[in-house]
Each structure stands twice: as C-alpha cells, then as structure tokens.
C-alpha cells in the first residue's frame, strides 16, 4: 500500500506550497525599507534591532505567550473531556453537544466580539488578562473537540471496556487507556487552540485597549501604519524556534531508538 511515486511527488509539492510563504518571510525581514518589501539596496537587521530593542514588541510577545498558554490549557482540558463524554454517550444528545461546540468556529468573530464586549462590561472584565484568556479558551475548545473526536472515531471502544472489566477505575482507564490512544488528536487540538489564541485579532481589538496589547494587535498596528516589517522578523524567529524544537525532538527520538 505504499504511495506511488506520483502520489509522493504531489504530497511533497503540497508541502513546498505550504512552506513557500515562509521562504519569503526571511528575506523580507531583512529589508532595508521601512515597509514590507524585499531588500533593494542591501540587507539590514534594523527590524530585528527594533524587535529586540522595543519594550512594546517584547511585551506583546510575552502577553501573547502567557494568554495563549493559559487559554490552551483550559481549552484542551475542557475540550478533551467533552469529546470523550460525547463519545461515551454515543447518542443524539452527544451529537447535539458536538454540533453546538462547532458554533464558535462558524459565527463570524466580529458578531461574538460585540456580544462579549457587552458581557465583559457588566462583569468588569474589559481590558483584563482574565477577560482575554477566558474568551480565547472558550473559542479554542471547538478545535480540541473536533480533533479529539476524530481521533476517538478510530479508537477501539472495546479497549476501554476491557480495561474496566479488568478492574481499572474510570479515571485509570481514562488516563492509561483512552488518553494515550487519542494523544495525537489531543496534541493537534492543543496546537490549534494555541495558534488560535496566538493569532486572534478581531476580539482583542474589541475587548482590549490599553493594558492588554497582544502580538496580533501590535502587528495590526504596524500594518495600518506602514506595513511594518518587524512582523516579518517576529515570524522568522517564531518559525526558527519551532523548527529547532522539532529538529531537537527528532534527534532525541533517534537517540532513543538507536
């Protein structure tokens, strides 16, 4: 069942398409101009200097990381449990819950932003970390529910039954049998939830003003002004970090196996 050479080429071509914009971001980050462009008269590191020398940019990165990590933790916990619950129910009610969980993805964010603004006014949560984290956590849950549900679709329910029959408690079964089985789904859900928070702009533009200034807001500010290339420098660094982490992970696995 190995893919043919053609299939494999198409697959790799798609991967190339995926990384194509990345290859452009690095040279753009070295532009000598004050706007997004390829370097013209020479390369310059001024946008990196600007990034690392500016308390504003660093502060925004810190804020986004903090908000993203906490929000993801909440999304993953609630979302995974919910998906498992629906899977166990395997009834109309479970399906209804899953369908409901999809709503946050489909409703245009701006509409929700309007609603949450009113709500946060009442609860005095405007422009606070708690307010932003809660919103990002809740809107991140759907990603986790979807990916975990898909993973559960391929999970053999009899394994769980077997574990219970052998005397494992419900919690033990969940931790030792179900979770390891659906781990890829949980991990990809966590990735999506984090990226969702890390990249979210529309709601933050509404519910944050002076205290919370996340990275997307900072980038947006620079885009409106003059397509500030500092955002290309940020992207380059994020990509480099991710690549290094993934390569390290790869090496460690190799050592373990070899």
């Amino acid at each position: 069942m190995n893919p043919t050479r053609l299939t494999r080429s198409v697959g790799w071509a798609v991967i190339c398409f995926l990384v194509l914009p990345i290859t452009i971001v690095f040279p753009v980050s070295l532009t000598d101009k004050r706007y997004l462009s390829l370097p013209e008269e020479g390369i310059s590191f001024k946008h990196y200097v600007n990034l690392f020398g500016s308390a504003e940019w660093l502060g925004s990165i810190g804020q986004s990381l903090y908000i993203g990590v906490v929000a993801t933790a909440i999304s993953v916990t609630a979302g995974t449990l919910c998906a498992i619950g629906c899977w166990r129910l395997s009834s109309r009610a479970g399906e209804a819950v899953r369908a409901m969980m999809l709503v946050p993805i489909v409703v245009p964010t701006i509409v929700y932003a309007l609603g949450i603004y009113r709500f946060w006014v009442d609860l005095r949560l405007l422009d606070t970390y708690t307010g932003v984290i809660l919103v990002h956590a809740v809107t991140g849950i759907p990603y986790v529910v979807v990916t975990v549900s898909t993973a559960l679709a391929g999970f053999d329910a009899r394994l769980e039954q077997a574990a219970r029959n052998l005397g494992a408690s419900a919690f033990q079964t969940l931790r030792r049998v179900v979770l390891p089985g659906i781990l890829p789904g949980v991990v990809s859900g966590a990735i999506f939830a984090f990226i969702h928070s890390w990249d979210e702009l529309v709601i933050v533009l509404f519910i944050a003003s002076r205290a919370v200034f996340t990275l997307p807001r900072r980038i947006w500010d620079g885009i409106n002004e003059h397509l500030d290339p500092t955002m290309a420098a940020v992207a380059t660094i994020m990509i480099a970090l991710t690549a290094v982490l993934l390569v390290l992970d790869l090496r460690m696995r190799r050592r373990k196996e070899g």
Binding site: L114, Y117, R118, V121, L205, F206, A208, S209, R210, D221
Partner: peptide, 23 residues
C-alpha cells in the same frame, strides 16, 4: 491626557454608549 490607539470605529463607540461604559 492619555492616548488609546485601539481605533475608535463607529461600532465600538455605539457599543460603549449603549453599554453605558464609555471609556
């Protein structure tokens, strides 16, 4: 006097006024 650079769109002003929480 402080400056808030978050962009005073019509929609945001309407939201604030209607929520009686003008900032």
């Amino acid at each position: 006097m402080v400056i808030d650079g978050s962009g005073p769109s019509n929609g945001k002003i309407k939201t604030m006024v209607m929520a009686k929480n003008v900032t």
